[in-house]
């Protein structure tokens, strides 16, 4: 187990390095730069600015410098958006806001998604199944900004029961969390249904019935744990994405989270923030995949982590 985790850490470092290089190069490939806008500063000012942030050096040297700093834990300072503040500090400030909504949304998605799928599978072909199928199909096909906007209009302006912007009270969490959770909840519901259907036709379920196990225990003890594996696979990347915040939801509800900030940094060409948020998201993704792989072992004892332990 320790060997497996150590191996995965080495792999993670290599992957992060590759991601860093590719992002750095791609980012610089785009014409223009952080200090160019409609009202461009004079060439002298521009040159001075570029010299200050080291942008006047050749690209590969810039990249080398960035990586050397990165290894030492220095993600640089923001060029524009929060001038000269360390990127790491900005991320650490924004991440908790996104993560708080993300965690609630994630729990919501799992807590409702898995039972929805299980119930649909158990009542396969009956009306419950049909209703849930319509809901989940809608959920995975309606774009997030439509869900968020419709909810905002209905609950925020038409019925005026929930606040529309910011995160001032517990009530203001309901709409963003639900909007963020809706898609994964429906997706998990569909996944669970499919995998539950597969599991309840397995022979060990028949054995459990033949033993006299109650239907409830068959679903919740024997079937659920076996059907959870595909869901777990999806949960790894989902957790990383949902924790770093949905751009759409954060924009619609005006929440100062990391997701929105990431998109803004790209629009503003604030290089260190683009790099910082990308690397942060990548690291989180890799970490979540590792956690999922370890959890596999707990859910399914047949999985052997030491053999062919690739992934990430």
């Amino acid at each position: 187990m320790i060997k497996f985790i150590a191996k995965r850490f080495v792999q993670a470092a290599i992957i992060l390095l590759i991601i860093t290089c590719v992002t750095f190069l791609l980012m610089n490939l785009v014409p223009g730069g952080p200090f160019l806008s409609e009202k461009s500063p004079s060439p002298q000012v521009l040159a001075a600015m570029e010299a200050k942030y080291g942008l006047d050096k050749p690209l590969l040297v810039q990249m080398k410098n960035y990586i050397v700093d990165l290894v030492q834990g220095d993600l640089g300072v923001s060029f524009k958006m929060q001038k000269n503040r360390p990127v790491l500090k900005i991320i650490m400030e924004m991440f908790p806001v996104s993560a708080k909504i993300g965690v609630i949304a994630l729990i919501w998605a799992i807590l409702f998604g898995v039972p929805m799928g299980s119930i649909a599978a158990y009542h396969r072909g009956k009306w419950v199944d049909s209703v849930l199928r319509v809901v989940t199909t809608l959920g995975v096909s309606i774009p997030g900004f439509v869900v968020a906007t419709v909810l905002l209009i209905l609950f925020g302006t038409v019925w005026k029961v929930l606040p529309t912007v910011g995160l001032l009270s517990w009530k203001s969490y309901i709409l963003p969390c639900f909007s963020l959770a809706f898609y994964p909840m429906c997706y998990i519901g569909r996944l669970s249904r499919a995998s539950m259907l597969d599991v309840i036709n397995q022979e060990y379920i028949r054995t459990a019935r033949a033993k006299g196990v109650s239907p409830r225990s068959i679903i919740f003890k024997h079937a659920l744990r076996n059907s959870f594996i595909p869901v777990l696979t999806y949960l790894g990347p989902l957790t990383a994405y949902i924790l770093t915040g949905g751009f759409v939801v954060e924009s619609v509800f005006n929440i100062p989270g990391l997701g929105r900030y990431f998109i803004q940094s790209i629009l503003n060409r604030d290089y260190p923030i683009i790099m910082g948020t990308t690397i942060f998201l990548a690291a989180l993704l890799i970490a979540m995949n590792l956690v999922v792989d370890i959890l596999y072992k707990t859910v399914d004892p047949r999985i052997d982590l030491t053999k062919g332990g690739e992934g990430a």
Binding site: Q202, E203, Y204, R206, T207, A208, A210, H222, R225, N226, V299, D300, P301, R302
Partner: peptide, 12 residues
Amino acid sequence: FQNPMTCLNPVY
């Protein structure tokens, strides 16, 4: 049952 390979729940 016939097939003991699949008749026991693999996760317990």
